[in-house]
Design a protein around this nucleic acid. Structure first.
Length: 464
RNA sequence: GUCCCCAUCGUCUAGAGGCCUAGGACACCUCCCUUUCACGGAGGCGACCGGGGUUCGAAUCCCCGUGGGGACGCCA
């Protein structure tokens, strides 16, 4: 049987890091087994679903490169089918109408809570042999409830958490269609997972408690039961739960912040899953290795530092033309014009090993295209009065040479030797004059790239 | 409250009863490299939640406790 997995987000917000990992794992599982990965948009909550959110999710998936084989399917477009199945269940006596008002239900829930009971529907409209149902109230459009088994246990072997068993006594007759006839989440999931032939349901573990209900419905429908793999959640950097109010950001924010998608993917792949001691792997490698056996059942805390480390790694590996393209855009946002000035590719080559993010890389390279911001502390420390005459002498020498790194290096070396100095004594003030600060790659290489005219101009503002 | 789940360095994790004096990675510290800062290299610090069992032997299996999380919607 071919493997078929799905990612089924509800379009009530962007694709966040937890959803992205769920999608990644589902995707990788399908890839690993030459199966199909299906994207399904669960938009039955009309009040909260938005087309913008749908687009945001699609954008996130595309940025990460998680491509789907089927879909996106939209549940709102499958209404007729859900209603047919509900009618079937009704006809077979596996579901029934319930005329309880929300107020009644609230009161019931409250009194159960007060008695320290698990709040649940008491089955007052559940038809039973020889049982007399309440009189139907006027003008109430009933909801449809699924007739859940009342005895026995629902047991499944969760591919991540192991065997889980829940007593049917803990469950109640859930609503599968609202008063207006629209089906609810738990029901749509069941119909879709069934009809889309999903073989492995990989999802967040906030769905563990829905699983027994879904299995019961699948059984009632005579459908095959898929395997389930429940992923534990991802906590924020501070160990706190991620929520819209706290720490949950769109994966696209990582793009904004200068992370490469392959770094995010690699990081997410390693968060809650392992392949021995392997830390760095391509998606190709990940798909070949991925399995459900090595997923950690406990929650994982997100660690931005480690993501940065991976990002730095991938910046070093990335195709230079792609980097140049990207950095150019980021410089535009910083209002830096790269059309004049040194070759951007060469500049990036010089800097790529020093950056954790693309934003850092862009910012650190800006001084090649505009006058640098001057760090006063660096000026005070390195541009001392005693060195100025030597710098001035060096300017004269620099004017004579062919403008290459080697030749520039030779000039600095010459000044160092002639004045019996250490190399940094000359290099540091130069660095500050040219880059504005005390950190940069080899100053001779920087000078070579920047060009003689600009270098001399920058020096002259300090040494004239 | 009820039910379900989880528990190894600060963090992500390896670990399938002896290979564990518990391994790797990020972070941190030291040293080396060096033209500053990074990169890179070599070291270092640092953990099996507690208590009972089972066993010749437990990080690993079982029970209890503790702690954390999730679920209990005409949300998904």
């Amino acid at each position: 049987m071919t493997v078929r997995t799905r990612f089924a987000p509800s379009p009530t917000g962007f694709l966040h890091i937890g959803g992205a990992r769920t999608a990644l794992f589902s995707w990788a599982y399908a890839r690993k087994h030459q199966g199909d990965f299906i994207l399904r948009i669960e938009d039955t909550d009309v009040a909260r679903s938005t087309p913008e959110a749908v687009q945001a999710i699609l954008d996130g998936m595309n940025w990460l490169g998680l491509s789907w084989d089927e879909g996106p399917f939209y549940q709102m477009q499958r209404m007729e089918r859900y209603k047919e199945v509900i009618q079937k269940l009704l006809d077979e006596g596996k579901a029934y109408h319930c005329y309880c008002s929300k107020e009644e239900l609230d009161a019931l829930r409250e009194s159960q809570m007060q008695q320290n009971l698990k709040p649940r529907y008491d089955g007052r409209w559940r038809p039973e042999l020889g049982k007399e149902l309440p009189a139907r109230p006027e003008g109430v459009s009933p909801v449809v409830r699924f007739k859940n088994p009342q005895t026995g246990n629902v047991v499944w072997n969760d591919l991540v958490k192991g065997q889980i068993s829940i007593a049917n006594e803990e469950l109640d007759d859930l609503i599968i269609a609202r008063g207006d006839g629209t089906p609810t989440y738990n029901f749509c999931v069941v119909v879709d997972d069934w009809e889309m032939g999903i073989t492995q349901v990989i999802r967040g573990d906030d769905h563990v408690n829905n699983t027994p209900r879904q299995i019961n419905m699948l059984v009632a429908l005579g459908a095959a039961i898929p395997q389930y793999a429940h992923l534990s959640m991802i906590l924020g950097d501070d160990g706190q739960k991620l929520s819209k109010r706290h720490g949950a950001v769109s994966v696209m924010q990582y793009d904004e912040d200068g992370y490469l998608p392959e770094a995010v993917l690699n990081y997410l792949g390693r968060l809650g899953w392992s392949h021995g001691d392997d830390e760095i792997f391509s998606m190709e490698q990940f798909c070949a290795w991925f399995d459900l056996d090595h997923i950690t059942p406990s929650a994982a805390q997100f660690n931005t530092e480690k993501l940065k480390w991976l990002n730095a790694h991938y910046i070093k590996q990335a195709d230079i033309a792609r980097l140049a393209q990207d950095i150019k855009q980021r410089l535009v946002k910083l209002e830096v014009d790269t059309t004049a000035g040194p070759n951007l590719t060469a500049v990036i080559q010089l800097y790529r090993e020093r950056a954790n993010t693309l934003n850092e890389l862009a910012a650190s390279v800006a001084y090649f295209y505009q006058k640098p911001a001057i760090d006063p502390a660096a000026v005070e420390k390195h541009i001392t009065p005693d060195i100025l005459p030597i710098i001035k002498a060096m300017v004269v020498e620099l004017a004579k040479i062919e403008w290459t790194t080697e030749a520039i290096h030779g000039v600095i070396e010459k000044m160092v030797t002639e004045n019996s100095l250490k190399f940094p004594k000359v290099a540091m003030p130069l660095r500050v004059m040219i880059t504005g600060g005390a950190q940069s790659p080899s100053i001779d290489a920087v000078m070579a790239l920047l060009g003689a005219e600009e270098v001399l101009s920058r020096i002259s503002t300090f040494a004239d």
